[in-house]
Each structure stands twice: as structure tokens, then as C-alpha cells.
Design a protein around this nucleic acid. Structure first.
Lengths: 231, 231
DNA sequence: CTCATTTCTTAAGGTTTTGTTAAGCTTTTT
DNA sequence: AAAAAGCTTAACAAAACCTTAAGAAATGAG
């Protein structure tokens, strides 16, 4: 089952955001808005990884890190503001296994989390975990490990962005995904309405998949809402 | 109760000689005069040890060794002619647990066999652990203990960094590894995007492995994601 | 310790691949 | 019919990657 992950950040929106993304990956999240609360949790739950914000009032993430290091040993990822001075960052993140500067792309954080867990457990991905990286339906096979795509036994050569889009639509098929959500997922940035980038990528995908907007076999347009792959 | 031992040598007299001595010690001997036949045996019998001649027509003992290392983990003793060049020997015997030069005294071979079996059964755990330090696939053999590398029976002289990179890619083959993850793994530091050092090492590796970016036999570039060795 | 050798990193220039923009077009909705 | 949303296309911009070489750093021998 999913690993236990501690998340501590006084910026509630960020902590919540991280929680959502981690839960989406089936991790068990222990979220706290203050280090004090977090310190209790460390003792009572068997954690597998921690994500800590560096700067927090009173006790900072660094204190939590130290506490963690005094007793238990599991990977720690630190979050730092982008405008911190470089040497300060290197100091603060000393002893952490990795760090990410805010603002960050949620998917990047997830990738780092997985990398750390992989490194820590040292063993290869379990079968169930490996299978989470493979989607197959309606003649389409997507492999997140190799980032390969097969359509009716024939390989489709997708660009990184195309793969990300198709993966997300596939993983959420049966649900309409707005361009905005898609953009947010793949690019991790704010969506600008003047931007028809998503549309162009969808177009390219359809072309490669021998799909069409008029009679979609895979990616269906839902007017005024977004795109969907039927379940 | 005797262990199952595979013997492969195209010099029949020698194979027969070995067989006699081993049977005299109550070992169950599976003797073959050609590697082809032997390859079948490997799959169908649970072997405890193998004695392989290095030089054999068509498929050589090395191919058998590779096959063995790809799947099962048990001690392998290689036989080499005395007049082989020294560096060739060290290269050829890489990945083997022991080697003996011909001509040899039968009792010495028996002694070695016993030593290997003792080591393997007595320190089963540590031994299988030791074999976790050997990777073999597609003509490539990597030994983390000696940090030596063999490509199609020929030794590759890799620098420490190169070996680390190749090892990590090999240990995770079938999965795309980003430059970032690679850097983190090998250097253990934060990755800076302005840094193309990973790329240069990949380039050197490819050159030594007679591999190319355009038509990769081993290290494949996955655009926008990273590098991968196919499984 | 010094010198020679090996190994690593950096930087620059070039190539290929991928992403974005914008404009004109079509379909759907009001 | 007009407006809004979506489609298509192609040119341009940007990102990612490759190659090479030279200097820096580390290593090892004497």
C-alpha cells in the first residue's frame, strides 16, 4: 500500500495542494500547518518520507528535520522560497535528501517523492506499483516507465507533452477534463485563456492516433467544457 | 544429497575427467560438450554450481556464464587455457566466482568446487547479496564488487563516474532516468540545469560502448525525459 | 612533495526536436 | 446572423540534446 508521508507547511494552500497530489498517488498523508503538531506525529506514526517547508514561524522546518534525524531515518524533502540566498539554502537544506524551490510543479514534487522512496526502499518497484504505471484500454497501451505508447500493437511516437496529455486523459477517462485543468496538470502553471496550446497538442495527438474531432475514437470534445476519453 | 553441477567443455577428455572426479565425490554431474546443449539444462535443472570452459567453438563458455547470470545465481568456475593473455583472462573471468587455468590438477578443481559450494551454502545470504552486485544482460556484464565491465567478452575500461552511471541505468533498465535523477544518484547533489556534465559522460560511455545517440544499442535518449536502457 | 597521468567539468557552437503563436477557417450556440 | 468555441495550419521560437575541446581537479607514481 501507499507510503506514509508527512507534510508540514504553514502556507495552508500549499500544504493542501501537496496533500491532494499525494493522495492522488495513493499515499497516506499526514498534513500539519505547524511544526509543533508535526513533532507529535513523528513519534506515533511510522513515516516513510517527509516534506518540510524551511521557513515557518517559531519552529521552522529545520527543527523538524533535526528532530527527524535524531531518531528515525527516512527521506526528507525540503521546500524553500525561490528568493532565499543560495548559501542560505544550501545551509538550510543540509541533511535533507532533496529540496525543491517554490513555486514548484506538483508533478515534479511527485517525481521527487517517488525517486526518494525508490532510493530508500532500495528494492525494485513492486509489481502493483509497476502496474500503476501502465494503462491499457481500447487498443491503447501507455507505459509511464518507458514513456512508450502502443496503439493497436503499433508504436506511437509521442512528444513528452503529448504523452503527458494522453496519460492524464487516459488516467481520468470517463471524466471531462477542461483545457485549464489539463494545462495546470501538464505545465503546472496558471492558465491563460488566450493560449490555445492545449488545443494544438490535442490536434497533434488526434493526428498521430488517426483520430478526428468530427468522429472521435479516443479524444472527444465536450463543447464548452473540455476533452474526454470515454470509459 | 550431492549438489547438481554443470560441466561444459568441448575437450571431451577434460569434461569426462572432471565428471569422474566429481562423481567420485558424490556430486550429480550434468556434462555437455557444447554450450548449446548446456543452455537447455540451465533452464530445466536446479543447479548448484557450474564449471565452464572459456574457449569453445561457436558459443563459448562466456555465453553460458551470461545466461546463467541473467537468471540464476549460483557459483561459476571458469576454465581458461594457460596461454591466454593475462588481461584477457581477467576480462573473461569477470563475473565468475573463480577460475582455473589448464592444465590443472583434478584435486585442485575439486577443492575449488567444495570451497565454492561451502561459501554458497554456508554464507547463503551474503553470497546472494554478492550476486546482487552483478548485472548481466545483452552482452554486458557489470560487477559492482570489482567495478569492472565487460561488453561482448571484451573488457571496457570505465572511469568511476562512468561505471556508476552505467550501473544505475542498468539496474533500472526499462525505466527512463532523468539527468536530474542520474546526477542526484551519482553525485548526490542538487542538479543545476546549466550543467551538462551528465550528457558528456553519457557521450563518453556511448563512445566506449560503440554506441551512438542516433542508433542506440544500449543507452537510449528519451526526449524531454532522460535516458534509458531497454529491458 | 612534485610531476605526470587520468578523470571530470565547463563552455561554446551546432543540430534536432518540440512548443507556441497567430491567423483564417468551421462548427455550434444564442 | 452574430458570437463563441473549437479546428487547422504553418512559421517561428525555444528547449533539449550532441559534440568537441580545453582547462581544472583529482589521482597515483616516483
Amino acid at each position: 500500500m501507499g507510503a506514509n508521508i508527512l507534510v508540514v507547511d504553514d502556507e495552508k494552500e500549499i500544504a493542501d495542494l501537496i496533500e491532494v497530489y499525494l493522495q492522488n498517488e495513493n499515499y497516506q498523508v499526514y498534513k500539519f500547518y505547524s511544526p509543533e503538531e508535526a513533532l507529535h506525529c513523528i513519534d506515533s506514526v511510522k513515516l516513510d518520507l517527509a516534506i518540510l517547508d524551511v521557513m515557518m514561524p517559531e519552529i521552522d522546518g529545520f527543527t523538524v528535520l533535526r528532530k527527524v534525524r535524531e531518531s528515525l531515518h527516512f527521506p526528507v524533502i525540503m521546500l524553500t522560497a525561490k528568493d532565499e540566498e543560495i548559501d542560505k539554502i544550501t545551509g538550510l537544506t543540509l541533511g535533507a535528501d532533496d529540496y525543491i524551490t517554490k513555486p514548484f510543479r506538483p508533478l515534479e514534487l511527485i517525481a521527487r517523492v517517488k525517486a526518494q522512496l525508490r532510493r530508500f526502499t532500495k528494492y525494485n518497484q513492486s509489481d502493483s506499483e509497476q502496474h500503476e504505471n501502465i494503462l491499457a484500454f481500447s487498443g491503447l497501451i501507455l507505459d509511464k516507465n518507458t514513456r512508450k505508447c502502443l496503439l493497436n500493437e503499433k508504436p506511437l511516437s509521442l512528444t513528452p507533452t503529448e504523452f503527458s496529455i494522453l496519460w492524464f486523459l487516459s488516467a481520468n477517462r470517463g471524466r471531462v477534463i477542461s483545457s485549464e485543468e489539463l494545462f495546470h496538470e501538464v505545465w503546472g502553471e496558471k492558465y491563460f485563456n488566450s493560449n490555445n496550446t492545449v488545443m494544438v497538442h490535442i490536434r497533434h495527438l488526434r493526428e498521430k492516433m488517426d483520430d478526428s474531432a468530427e468522429h472521435p475514437k479516443y479524444i472527444k470534445t465536450v463543447w464548452g467544457v473540455g476533452y474526454m476519453i470515454e470509459k
